[in-house]
Simulated assay, not measured.
Amino acid sequence: MLELGLRADSGRFSGGTSCYAALNEAEKFADHLEGFPRDLTDAREYKFGGDLPGLLLGGASLRFKCIDGSGHLAVTVEIWDESKQGGRETVSVVLQAVPAQIDAFVKDLRSMEAYVGSTAFLAAAI
């Protein structure tokens, strides 16, 4: 098992959590995103971590979709964490990206190794 730290920041909202995943989770995520988008209707979703209330596990859902015919993409990131005080804390951010940024992110994911400090970063479009 691997502990992943996940963060998202839109400039207005941000959040983060930790979750556990398989040692090859980054590679599986990269495989899922490879070649996105194939066409204007292409939409993909990937989930990390736990989604069972009461287990004090965090997680994230990432949804990728095209927003126009000019290559603009929307990445919706929902992050959650179970609070020790009870209840769930969540944040949802929407980032704008272009296909080249997704390709660079996939490359970063493929270069990740199972050691502390290994990172992959999806840069949002300006």
Results as ranks from 00 to 15, higher is better:
A60P: 07
Q96N: 14
R44F: 08
C66R: 09
A60T: 09
K65D: 10
G35H: 02
G86A: 06
G69P: 00
C19S: 11
G71D: 07
H72W: 03
A8P: 01
V91H: 04
L4K: 07
S111G: 10
R38P: 00
G117T: 05
D68F: 06
A120E: 03
G11Q: 10
E82M: 12
R12C: 10
L57H: 09
M112Q: 12
F29T: 11
F13Q: 12
G49D: 03
L62V: 13
N24E: 13
L56I: 00
I67S: 09
E27V: 11
G11V: 04
E82P: 03
E34F: 03
H32M: 04
K28C: 12
V94L: 02
A22E: 15
V91D: 12
R7W: 06
F36P: 07
L33Q: 01
A104N: 06
E3A: 15
T41Q: 09
V77E: 10
E34D: 06
A21K: 03
G16N: 11
E89W: 01
D51K: 11
S18Y: 08
A30N: 05
Q85R: 14
M112R: 02
P37N: 05
L73E: 00
A124I: 01
V75P: 05
L95Y: 02
Y115E: 12
G15S: 02
V116F: 09
Q85H: 12
F105S: 11
I67F: 05
I102W: 05
H72Q: 09
F121P: 00
F105R: 06
R38Y: 08
A124N: 00
D108S: 07
L55G: 02
E27F: 04
A8G: 15
G59L: 04
A30R: 02
L55Q: 15
S118R: 07
A26S: 15
G86F: 02
L109M: 06
A21V: 15
I79D: 07
S111M: 09
A97G: 05
W80N: 11
T90K: 08
K47Q: 13
L122W: 00
D9A: 14
L56T: 05
E3W: 01
D42I: 04
G50A: 11
K65F: 02
T41E: 11
K47C: 13
D103N: 14
A97K: 08
Q85G: 12
K47L: 08
G71C: 05
I67W: 02
R63Y: 11
R7M: 06
L33T: 03
A26M: 07
E89C: 10
S70V: 02
D81H: 15
E89F: 01
C19N: 07
E82H: 14
D68E: 05
V75F: 03
R110V: 08
A114K: 09
V116C: 14
A8T: 05
S70Y: 08
I67E: 15
G87Y: 07
K47W: 05
F13Y: 11
R7H: 12
G5E: 13
L55S: 06
S18K: 06
G15W: 03
F121K: 09
S70D: 13
L2C: 13
E82Q: 14
Q96F: 07
V94K: 02
A22R: 07
R44N: 09
